[in-house]
Design a protein around this nucleic acid. Structure first.
Lengths: 330, 330
DNA sequence: GATATATATGAAACTGGTTTCATATATGTT
DNA sequence: AACATATATGAAACCAGTTTCATATATATC
C-alpha cells in the first residue's frame, strides 16, 4: 500500500502539499496539483482512513440503528440507505437495538469515539434526553420513528393521518366494532402516540366509543398477530374489523383467522400498515397503508450528508406522502 | 475523551505498560496491572480504535457482503451475524453487492485498507481467482454461497442433498413433470451447480428425462416467480409440479397460479427453499426446504473470529443439517 | 559465585495522515 | 520605492495508540 510519503517522493514535493491536494486546500499551484494527481494515480494511492480519522476527520461511515433487521420494513429501509450511502462513498455500519436501551446507547457511543460520522436512528428506545447529548459528537438523523420536539432533523410520515385514513376506511366499509393493535398505548411522543391519536380521531368523528377489550398492546411480529386473533376468539363480543399496525401482524391475524374458519373480510376485515411485499401474497390480498420506504431512506442519508458537509445544521422535518392501498382484506 | 497518556499518568506508569495491559501482553506485574485497570475504570477510558487501526491492528469490525438485504433469507442471516458479532464486541459493516462484480471488489478492498478485520461473503459475484488475492490482507469466510475448492473456511449446507430431497418428495407425490427454477444453469461451482446436480440425480434415479422447457434460469424474486408462472401458462405441455429455489419465487408462482384459477397442489404443486416466515403465511402453506439460517450466521462469525485470534488459519468446511418441511402446497 | 534466562519497565521510534508555523515569492497599494 | 497582502511551499509537531530497543532486577543453572 503506497502512503502519502510515497506520493510526495514521486511528485518531488512534501507530504504537506500532497495532503493539501487531497483536501482541496487553496494555495497549491496548478502544476503541482497535476503532478500530485498523476503520482497518486500511478501508485494507485488511496488515503488510509484510520490515519485521517485519528486526526479527527472523516470516517466516511454512517451508522444505522434498527430494532430488528429481519422486519422487512427495516430491511427495505436499510436497503435504500445503503444504496444512497454507497453512491456518496459512505459505508454503512448496521446495528440492531433489539429494543434494548443499553444496546442503543452503546451504539450511539460510536459517535463519541469517532467511529461513525453520523447516525440514522430508525427507532428510539431511550428517553430523548439521554440521546440528545450525543448530538454534540456528531449529527443524528431520525427516520421513521421520531420525537416531535427534538432539535434534530427527521424524515417521517404523518402517522396520525395514516392511521386515521385506515380506520376511516374501515368505518366507511360499515364497521363499528374495530380492533386496534399498537406498539405502545401510553406513548408520550412519536409514532405510536400519533397513531393512537389518529385512531381516536377517526372513531370520535364517527361517534364510535372505544372498547378497551379490542385494543392490543405491544404488537410487532407475525407471532403477535396470531395471538391477537386467538385473544379475539375468546371474546363474546368480537370486533368485525382490525387495524394491525404492520403487515406482519396482519399476516399473523389472517393465518389464525383462516385456521379457525373465519372468512376475510366477511367475518373479520383486516388492514395492515407498510405495504410490504407479503401484503400482495396473502390470501386475500391485504389492504394496507403504504409508506414510501425507499424515499425515506434516501432523504435520511441525503439529509445526514448535508449536515456533515454544511457546518450549519439545519433542523428540518421532512414529511412524506401517505397512501391507502385497498385490496381484498377489507 | 481520556487517552492512554492520561491513564499512564494517573497510574504513575508509562504508556507502554498501559498498552501492555490493554493487549494482554505478558511481563506486567499483577500490582501494576491492577493499578492500570483501576485508572482506566476511573477515567472511563476506552482505547481509540483509529489509533490501534493505524498500527495495523484490530478494527473490531467485520464486513458482510450480501446480494440484497431485502431478501429475507439474507436479512435473517445478517440478523444472526450481527447478534453474534455484538456479543463478541465486533461491529458489522454491511454491504450489498447487488450482484455487481465491481461493487463486490470495492468492498473487498476494505480489507486491504484495513477498514475491516475480516469479511463474511454470503454471495460471490466474481471469479474466485479475483477474490482469492484479498485473503492476504485478512480472513475471508464464505457463508451460504461457496466455492468448493477454495482454500478458505466456509459454512454451508449440502445444497445438492437439499434439492435432491425436494425433487424426490415431488416424485413420491406422483409427479413426473417437474419444473425447475435455478439461479444459474451453467454454474461451474458452488450452490447453483450443486443444486443442479441434486435435481439431475433425483430425476435420473426415477428414470425421468429432463425437459428443458421446464427449466427457468436466473430466478430470484417474487416478481420472477410470477413471470415463471406466466411462462408455464403459455406451454401446451405443462409441468404438474415446480421446484422454485426460494420461498420468494414460490410465493410469486403461487399468487399468479391462483390468479389464473389453478388449484394448488392439485393443478400444480409448489416447493420452496429456505423456510422463510412467508412459507407459513401463504395459502396453501408452502412445502419447503429449511436452511438453519441462525446457525449459519453464528458459525460464520465464530469461525471468522477464531481466524482473527489464532494466527494459524484452519480451513474448515462446516456442513449444517438440511430438512424438508412438508406443508400443503405439495 | 558466575553466568544464563525470565520477568518487568520505560524512552523513543513508528503508523499515515493533518495542522501549525516559518519562510519565500508574487502581486497590489500608496 | 516601501510596505502590505495574497499565494505557495515544506519542516516539524501532532493525533493515540503499538512496537522496538535498552536496561534493570529476579530467578535458575552450573
Amino acid at each position: 500500500m503506497p502512503t502519502i510519503t510515497d506520493v510526495a517522493k514521486l511528485a518531488g514535493l512534501s507530504k504537506t502539499t500532497v495532503s493539501r491536494v487531497l483536501n482541496n486546500h487553496p494555495y497549491v499551484s496548478k502544476e503541482n496539483k497535476v503532478l500530485v494527481q498523476k503520482a497518486m494515480e500511478q501508485l494507485g494511492y488511496s488515503p488510509n482512513p484510520s490515519a485521517r480519522r485519528l486526526r479527527g476527520q472523516l470516517t466516511c461511515t454512517i451508522g444505522v440503528i434498527v430494532p430488528r433487521i429481519v422486519n422487512p420494513f427495516f430491511s427495505y429501509l436499510v436497503n435504500s440507505i445503503e444504496k444512497v450511502a454507497y453512491k456518496n462513498n459512505y459505508q454503512v455500519l448496521i446495528f440492531q437495538s433489539d429494543e434494548n436501551k443499553e444496546k442503543e446507547l452503546n451504539f450511539l457511543n460510536l459517535l463519541k469515539i469517532k467511529q461513525v460520522d453520523g447516525i440514522i436512528m430508525t427507532s428510539i428506545e431511550n428517553e430523548w434526553d439521554s440521546i440528545e447529548q450525543y448530538t454534540k459528537y456528531g449529527p443524528i438523523m431520525l427516520c421513521n420513528e421520531y420525537v416531535n420536539n427534538a432539535k434534530v432533523p427527521m424524515v417521517r410520515l404523518d402517522q396520525s393521518e395514516g392511521t386515521y385514513i385506515g380506520i376511516k376506511h374501515l368505518i366507511e366499509r360499515g364497521h363499528k366494532k374495530i380492533g386496534y393493535c399498537t406498539g405502545g398505548l401510553f406513548a408520550e411522543d412519536g409514532k405510536d402516540k400519533d397513531r393512537n391519536q389518529g385512531y381516536q380521531k377517526a372513531l370520535k368523528e364517527a361517534g364510535i366509543a372505544i372498547n378497551p377489550n379490542w385494543i392490543f398492546v405491544n404488537q410487532h411480529s407475525i407471532e403477535d398477530g396470531k395471538q391477537v386473533m386467538n385473544q379475539i376468539l375468546t371474546l363474546n363480543d368480537r370486533p368485525t374489523a382490525i387495524f394491525t399496525g404492520s403487515d406482519e401482524i396482519a399476516g399473523g391475524v389472517m393465518i389464525e383467522a383462516k385456521k379457525h374458519g373465519l372468512k376475510i373480510p366477511d367475518d373479520i376485515a383486516i388492514i395492515g400498515f407498510d405495504d410490504q411485499p407479503i401484503a400482495e401474497l396473502l390470501e386475500p390480498a391485504l389492504t394496507t397503508i403504504r409508506q414510501p420506504i425507499d424515499q425515506m431512506g434516501e432523504k435520511a442519508v441525503e439529509g445526514l450528508i448535508a449536515m456533515l458537509n454544511n457546518q450549519e445544521v439545519q433542523i428540518k422535518k421532512i414529511d412524506l406522502p401517505i397512501q391507502l392501498v385497498i385490496r381484498k382484506s377489507t
